[in-house]
Design a protein around this nucleic acid. Structure first.
Lengths: 352, 352
DNA sequence: CCGTTGATTTGGAACGGTCCAAGTCGCTCG
DNA sequence: CGAGCGACTTGGACCGTTCCAAATCAACGG
């Protein structure tokens, strides 16, 4: 057993405590879980010994018997993306509140790695998994995962055809709001920028963009879609592609904030003033968005709350609720700052 | 036991496999660890059954017996800070390679929370902990942690007086390089911006700043230190404070990239051109740095590699190496981009 | 035909908890 | 005075592995 002073040696167990306190291990176990069955005097004696020995509860051993686990797998596709970092923080915080402990895996969009970590997590006995799937994950892969038949919620990237509960923002409605705002500002030629058609998130955001266009009686022109990696660099390239076009757009609605930041930056370096000469709006409302030059108008999905919602849904699943009931589509909110040209439009009105 | 088809019911154990394969559980255990002791024919038979039953190895049970663990605690002070996100990714990646599984906790700079997660991790039987301590963590706290006497490496924020191994960049040398570069560009009034004197990291970076100043025969003026939160907003405020001064600096060396980004942004909104009118340099070289307006000159510490180094050091500690030997100070490298005024200076030379 | 050897296989005690049926103890009540 | 009761306490099986000493088996040499 561990020496109370040095902490050296075999770690102290419940049996050591029992012996030292002159009770049975059952009683110590009872004390540990704060049962009202044990006499106050006994409890105090045991607690004193626990304190003196610096005893550490072995949750793993306990879980073996009860066949439960307080671990939850948190599989993130790209943690260096500030959006996913924020999501991860939301999930972690909520799990902590619920008494769960997150095991982290950053798949870095690697399907093979994703398979590995899923298997590893299962072996480590997680109670469930929250996953933002790597690009390319499809329903079939998901259904044949080593981790099938374990509680799992998918977040942020909908997998068509998968029965797993999905938690994410209402991309279509959010995109529509953003584009309607641009239209309200007087824009008539609005491009969509970033992402690829294979991403369900892009599909949904494009659908919202088209909805807004069509509702305003504007033409839906596929030529105004500029695909790119969903990165700053992608935004830059997409914007350059748009500018190289015979009739460049007067505003761009971007796949996400990162793309929008790349786009505003590319505009600036060419001497075109984002927010004044060209309207730009993003999606996600990451922290950096308000510090961009100019501050980004964007669609907020309340990422942290979404993370909390993932944890709630997983808990529901673990407790036995149906997968369908645990899906959740979050409301979105348009955050108007300067990149869309709102202040410019306002100023125009002011002097008109 | 779990039904091979539906996966419903009690999970399959090694004993179920043994029974079905007509061998003892010892043999199955041997097969599982790829022992050469079992006959090929037997191995194949057992493996077939394992496959058919979709058996999942229970690492927790195994660890109970062997008193080992493949968990490592990863305690991060602020995961929404892109620098720490990058560090976390580096650590996670390295741990994964080494066969460890990271348990994540984001303390959000909360000391109480830090105490909780450390205790929780110990109960969950982590093999060791890698921690970027929350602000305010001191040697005394660390020494009296519930997790004392467990392998632990501290990263990115040195705790004075603690015997724990520390992994971090050479802040002083890095800062000195940055300021020397600024001096070489012709700057004579160089401010230090961001962080607080209570942070060891700030102390080290300020020391480097002073070293460079003194080595160049420039006065070391405490009035040129503008403290602030190490955030974008802090950078903005610090810069405004500097501008409100009778003799504003012509260049600023910032506590980190985030502060520098806040500073460049504040400059821009006041019509002062960062990189042309005022030199700005950051520290950390986060991903965003090169996409800033203008791209940030900064000191790179190779954050990912630093994360890997944390994992290596922890492994060393677990294997029994002395704490002192596991400390590591990483080389830094100045990354010259545009914010320091280098291109401006170059242009000046060009036309001179 | 038996002892020996090397190759395989195995039984059962750990590991550190939880759980529950059963036990102990001091009182009260008839 | 003994049964009954409530308050506490306890022994020992059990969770799913690992480990090791011992058992089994087949083949070989004498």
């Amino acid at each position: 057993m561990g020496d109370p002073r040095t902490g050296i040696g075999r770690p102290t167990t419940i049996v050591d405590i029992a012996r030292a306190a002159g009770v049975s291990k059952s009683t110590v176990s009872l004390v540990l879980k704060g049962s009202s069955l044990v006499k106050t005097e006994t409890r105090e004696r045991v607690e004193a010994v626990i304190e003196r020995f610096g005893y550490v509860y072995n949750r793993g051993a306990a879980n073996l018997r009860t066949a439960t686990s307080s671990f939850v797998g948190m599989v993130i596709s790209d943690l260096t993306n500030p959006f996913f970092a924020e999501l991860a923080v939301g999930i972690e915080e909520a799990l902590y509140q619920l008494g769960f402990v997150p095991i982290l895996a950053n798949t870095n969009e690697d399907l093979e790695r994703q398979g590995h970590v899923l298997r590893s997590m299962r072996e480590h006995g997680v109670a469930g998994i929250i996953m933002s799937p790597a690009r390319g994950t499809d329903a079939w892969t998901l259904a044949n995962l080593p981790a099938r038949s374990m509680p799992m919620v998918i977040t942020m990237r909908r997998i068509l055809g998968s029965p797993l509960p999905y938690v994410g923002p209402d991309n279509q409605a959010g995109a529509r709001k953003a584009v309607e705002h641009l239209i309200g500002l007087g824009h008539r030629r609005i491009a969509f920028m970033g992402g690829f058609a294979s991403m369900t998130t892009q599909q949904e955001r494009i659908a919202g963009w088209r909805d807004a266009l069509l509702a305003a009686g504007l033409p839906f022109d596929e030529g105004l879609i500029f695909e790119s990696m969903p990165t700053r660099d992608g935004g830059k390239k997409a914007l350059e592609a748009a500018l190289a076009t015979p009739r460049p757009p007067t505003a761009v609605f971007c796949y996400n904030d990162i793309v929008a930041m790349g786009a505003t930056r590319a505009l600036s370096t060419r001497g075109i003033r984002p927010g004044l000469d060209v309207g730009v709006v993003g999606f996600d409302d990451i922290d950096e968005a308000e510090h961009n030059a100019p501050p980004l108008t964007t669609v907020s999905a309340d990422t942290r709350a979404m993370g909390a919602r993932c944890a709630d849904s997983l808990l529901g699943l673990i407790r036995g609720s149906g997968a369908a009931d645990m899906s959740y589509t979050g409301e979105t909110r348009l955050v108007v700052r300067e990149s869309c040209g709102a202040p410019f439009a306002a100023r125009k009105r002011e002097y008109a």
